[in-house]
Design a protein around this nucleic acid. Structure first.
Length: 506
RNA sequence: GGCCCGUUCGUAUAGAGGCCUAGGACGCCUCCCUUUCACGGAGGAAACACGGGUUCGAAUCCCGUACGGGCUACCA
């Protein structure tokens, strides 16, 4: 089989991380089977269309390295790939369904629908819906005669086209993840196929496009599982061979209470979008994983494991390795919670493999925008020192800022705790002794410094924490010899100046 | 509420009837390395939702219950 899969998002805003994972699984499956992965834009809801969303989707997939090779922005022989541009097509097919008795026109107003629902619900019907049991009591081309229907349509009053769902059938299919799934047709409503504005609903457009674009596997989120019955009915009505369906487990909030949503980023303190999104309002604007500092390879690796695993103990996978290892029989059925700690761990694994000069190139603009001097050599040295201490590259200039520029603050509490006033004179001797040092090789520095300590009668435990605070402001970080190695003479000067400041602050 | 789907350590998961005293990973804790932090190394706490079956034997199969999630629009 010539595998063709599609990622079909709606341009209603930023592309959610769950969407990225769906795109990823589509991509992996396509590549694994030497098939095609295409992008289709489902913009059938004109009210929810958002400027810039299409571009955002394309850029996101590109950043993640899972680019489609066909579809909107990529060309292909099955276009157009934007559903709004296929409007006439859907209507033609819907009309055909009406003619063959598989669908019908419906004229009910919103109020009339509401009346029907509340009447049914008052009568104790658990799930009031427009279906075979109420169809003939409603205003449609089945309950009314041909003249009425013709004149209504000619009058230009709005109408929709609904699928005629017969009761008494069982619709079943074999999901590649969930195995056999069954639905009773009584549970299904007469879904609207064409809306009053002439646009198709998702269900209609989806089925027609998947058929016309020769999609072999529909790989989508679990939120679509319930409507698959309707889609199957549509394939039946058209007498088309349906594609295979694969419903992916949802990505849940960290607390497991529902699927991860837009606002959860702010709530839980990490992004839920690949790239930053500037909406109309501040509330609708979000940061992305790119800006947060995750490497796309790490994000993809992490995302791949949210709902799938290779069955081995290997965790670090390149995209190509994922392509080889991926399969639906290893995809889980239950939803997976988003765990930012694990994502950061993946990122740490990845950044440790990036060559230092590449990281330096990325740090350069940040350093310069901070107004610091960019020195390739010391930058490289700083990277070497800090790469294993951070989870994200953008943490380096934050944590190691004191190696790029002047010290701005220090931990006063720590100083008070470690400073022994009775050692003041010895400290002064030490500082005077080392001010003539001219070699800043870390190892040499260490032996020289320790030698001085011994002569003066100071213990490393009394001196090093103080030096560390004077040099970096905090008790954490690389060895003071490494710091001095990078800072050079300036480090010695800082030692003097900062110690004075700290003593004055007592 | 109805329908559908699901449920192994805190998290993501391994597990396809005996290999399970349930494995590894992230996180957490202890120790080692070390002037500190991190890295690395060694250990530790930590799970089969519950109840019935089936079977010589069940985390694995079946049925119920509980809990969680999805859907229930002229949204996708």
């Amino acid at each position: 089989m010539n595998v063709r899969v599609r990622f079909a998002p709606s341009p209603t805003g930023a592309l959610h991380i769950g969407g990225v994972r769906t795109a990823l699984y589509n991509y992996l499956y396509a590549k694994k089977n030497k098939g095609k992965f295409l992008l289709r834009i489902e913009d059938t809801d004109q009210n929810r269309w958002v400027q810039g969303a299409e571009e955002y989707i394309i850029e996101s997939l590109r950043w993640c390295g899972i680019e489609p090779e066909e579809g909107l922005g990529y060309g292909g022989n099955y276009g157009p790939y934007r559903q709004s541009e296929r409007k006439a097509l859907y209507y033609k097919y819907a009309h055909h369904l009406v003619q063959s008795g598989k669908a019908y026109y419906a004229f009910d107003t919103e109020e009339e629908l509401e009346v029907m629902r509340s009447r049914l619900s008052d009568a104790g019907v658990a799930a009031p819906k427009y279906d075979a049991s109420v169809r003939m009591e409603m205003k449609n081309s089945l309950s009314q005669d041909a003249d009425y229907t013709a004149s209504w349509i000619n009058s230009g009053q709005g109408y929709v086209i609904r699928l005629k769902v017969d009761s008494g059938n069982t619709i079943s299919y074999v999901d590649l993840v969930r195995e056999e799934v069954k639905f009773a047709s009584e549970e299904l409503d007469d879904k609207v196929l064409i809306k009053a504005d002439g646009m198709p609903t998702y269900h209609m457009a989806n089925v027609i496009d998947d058929h016309l674009m020769e999609i072999t596997h529909v790989i989508r989120g679990e939120e679509w599982l319930s409507s698959t019955a309707h889609h199957l009915l549509l394939y039946q009505a058209f007498e088309w061979q349906p594609p295979l369906f694969v419903h992916l487990p949802l990505i849940l909030k960290p607390d497991g209470k529902g699927k991860l949503s837009k606002r959860d980023g702010a709530k839980f303190g990490f992004p839920v979008f690949p790239l930053a999104w500037a909406g109309q309002t501040e509330e609708d604007s979000f940061t992305g994983f790119r800006e947060y500092g995750l490497e796309p390879e790490a994000l993809i690796n992490f995302l791949a494991f949210l709902g799938w695993n290779p069955g081995t103990e290997q965790e670090i996978f390149t995209l190509d390795q994922l392509v080889i290892a991926f399969d639906f029989d290893k995809v889980h059925k239950g939803g997976a919670r988003f765990d930012i700690d694990k994502a950061l761990w993946f990122n740490q694994q990845y950044i440790k493999q990036i060559p230092g000069d590449q990281i330096a190139q990325r740090l350069k603009p940040i350093i310069e925008s901070n107004g610091w001097d960019y020195n390739p050599e010391s930058c490289l040295a700083i990277i070497q020192l800090y790469l294993e201490r951070v989870h994200k590259i953008n943490e380096i200039p934050v944590q190691a800022y004191y190696l790029f520029t002047e010290l701005s603050t220090y931990d006063q509490e720590a100083f008070k705790k470690h400073w022994k006033p009775e050692l003041k004179v010895k400290f002064e001797t030490l500082l005077a002794d080392i001010s003539s040092i001219s070699s800043f090789d870390a190892q040499e520095l260490e032996s020289v410094l320790k030698e001085h300590l011994k002569v003066i009668g100071l213990k490393p435990g009394d001196v090093f924490p103080i030096f560390r605070l004077a040099l970096s402001g905090s008790l954490h970080g690389p060895t003071i010899f490494q710091m001095l190695n990078i800072l050079g003479k300036k480090g010695l000067e800082r030692l003097h100046a900062q110690l004075k400041i700290m003593l004055d602050g007592l």
